[in-house]
Design a protein around this nucleic acid. Structure first.
Length: 520
RNA sequence: GGGCGCGUAGCGCAAUGGUAGAGCAGUGGCCUUUUAAGCCAUCGGUUGCAGGUUCGAGUCCUGUCGCGCCCA
């Protein structure tokens, strides 16, 4: 269905036609710019400092964001990625017709180019005295008309685009009018850059492993399923990188990492998006305690690089990202929080009974590990506001982690938490192929055939391990969540450029409800 | 999946069950240092969608779509 233009768009289309009639191409192929807005302002300041005789000349380009027409002069602001700069249009300089053209045929939101000399207005604002200007790209749809007012030195923004649905569905408009949203994604890019630099500096090799996988694994999650037509083969979008990265240790790489997208076909919430960005690394000859130390160091490094401080505020909490993080053994932590001693309960039945005795209602039909997970989620996780490692997890929910020597119910695994949210997950990796096979079979028995967290057995992974895999520590961390922590955002949708929303045409104005109802 | 809340003009918002409004944006005009410029005039609505109750529904009820928050 072709787009139906609204009243405001039709007005702009008419002006676009008018420009064409005047021989002006509203979407020219080439643009010119000598200075960004910020560079132009700096250039003026330098000229003033040097008491230059001639005013510096610039060509600036950007989106027209404000216009104040005052008879024979017009003030405007254009914005580029570096910021805003004021333009001064004067009938005496440009001629009456040119000024009228700018006032009547150019719209807020249009990309324009302007050439002239720099000066300061009466109020001291750096301004381009425009001698010529041209259209670079006409905007048909008006952007939300956010205006900034300075009150007591603070910027107060009016009528700013705030509807979260529109902001996420039309992120381009959100980014165009909300500069602080652009900053979130600059921060995100810096985080990823800092992580890469840290890992590279520590001798890790960045690799790329398959996103389309014949067998999914490495996490407890439901996959997206797809199909290769020519191979006539069902494929899955990966739910983790783990099994492929560890194959590389068999292949004699000792430190590898990957930053990329994982896909999990599960619920969407303020901390879950169906595709999310993950960092995983695997480190030969390391164990989970070494990985813990390394994690603290890495997060502190990223904080230093990205924020310039290790003390942050997240949702009103003062959080200190400096090492060392608090370390809590899971058994001890649960004993203190609930009075239940998981070490005294070797199976699900005894643990459920112990939980009931302490007034905690166990989830029905849950395994021992899932009951423990339940208690962690209810009694520990929300309290881990300061960076905290919780370590020594139950074996039956950790099929890829190595057991603790002398304690078959526990594996060497930790999770890191910040702001009451799980941030990372790591273990001393299981490298015994026979034990690994037994774990896979055990999982197959424990989970019902239709359980969404059931793992198919990856025979090729077992084959790789049989060739010999060095002892190693592995680590996975959600980049989206780390970005939430660093940017003080409560919702993962704020840190993902194009978060998934339920389908609804091109926008909230378009109604498909009627069509859907009619077709049923 | 369940509970609660929200959905009104391009944007941010009003409107006891009784004529759907003002601001910004837009349009026409005045204005040579403005900066949410100002002043005068003016255009703009399927109140998410579909039903229902009522003399009368943006408002109450049912269903539905979407978003948000809480829970699972």
């Amino acid at each position: 269905m072709p787009h139906e233009f609204n009243r405001l768009e039709k007005e702009r289309l008419a002006r676009l036609e008018r420009l064409r009639e005047m021989g002006i191409e509203p979407y020219p192929n080439r643009a010119e710019r000598t200075h960004t807005a910020a560079e132009a302002i700096r250039t003026l300041e330098q000229a003033e400092a040097q008491q230059a005789e001639e005013a510096p000349r610039v060509i600036v380009a950007g989106r027209l964001r404000a216009r104040r027409v005052m008879g024979k002069i017009t003030f405007a602001h254009i914005e580029d990625e570096s910021g805003r700069i004021q333009l001064f249009f004067q009938a005496n300089t440009l001629g009456k017709d040119a000024l009228k053209q700018f006032n009547k045929l150019y719209d807020l939101g249009d990309f324009i180019q302007a050439e002239g000399f720099l000066f300061r207005t009466r109020t001291g604002e750096p301004t381009v005295h425009v001698e010529s200007f041209r259209m670079l790209a006409k905007a048909i749809t008006p952007l939300p008309p956010a205006k900034d007012e300075i009150v007591d030195g603070k910027v107060v923004r009016h009528a700013v685009l705030a509807d979260s649905e529109t902001r996420y569905r039309q992120r381009y408009a959100d980014l165009a009018v909300n500069p602080e949203v652009r900053d979130i994604f600059r921060t995100r890019a810096k985080i990823v850059r800092a992580l890469r630099d840290f890992l590279d500096d520590h001798g890790f090799l960045e690799v790329e492993t398959p996103i389309l996988q014949p067998i999914y694994g490495g996490a407890a999650a439901r996959p997206f399923v797809t199909y290769h037509n020519q191979l006539k083969q069902q494929l899955y979008l990966r739910i983790s990188f783990e099994l492929y990265l560890k194959r590389l240790l068999v292949g004699m790489f000792e430190k590898v990492y990957e930053i990329g997208r994982d896909f999990r076909n599960e619920g969407i919430s303020f901390k879950h998006n169906p595709e999310f960005t993950q960092l995983e690394f695997y480190w030969a000859y390391a164990d989970y305690f070494k990985v813990m130390d390394f994690t603290e160091e890495m997060i502190a490094y990223v904080a230093d690089r990205v924020l310039g401080t290790r003390k942050i505020t997240w949702q009103g909490h003062e959080i200190d990202l400096s090492p060392p993080w608090k370390r809590i053994e899971m058994r001890q932590g649960l004993l203190e929080a609930t009075g239940v001693d998981i070490a005294a309960c070797p199976d699900a039945e005894s643990l459920a009974a112990a939980m009931k005795a302490k007034g905690v209602e166990p989830k029905p039909n849950a395994s021992r590990g899932k009951l423990i997970d339940q208690m962690v989620g209810d009694f520990l996780e929300p309290n881990f506001i300061q960076p905290t490692f919780l370590y020594d997890y139950p074996r039956d929910i950790s099929p890829l982690a190595k057991a603790r020597p002398g304690d078959p119910t526990t594996v060497e695994r930790f999770e890191g938490f910040i702001g009451g949210m799980e941030l990372c997950n790591a273990f001393t990796e299981l490298n015994d192929p026979l034990d690994q096979e037994a774990r896979f079979l055990e999982m197959g028995r424990t989970y019902a055939a239709d359980d969404e967290e059931r793992h198919p057995i990856d025979e090729d992974y077992l084959r790789a391990m049989r060739y010999g895999m060095p002892p190693n520590g592995g680590f996975g961390m959600g980049i989206d969540r780390l970005t939430m922590i660093f940017t003080d955002k409560r919702s993962i949708r704020e840190v993902i450029l194009f978060p998934h929303l339920r389908e609804r045409g091109d926008g909230k104005d378009e109604d498909r409800a009627g069509e859907a109802a009619a077709s049923e």
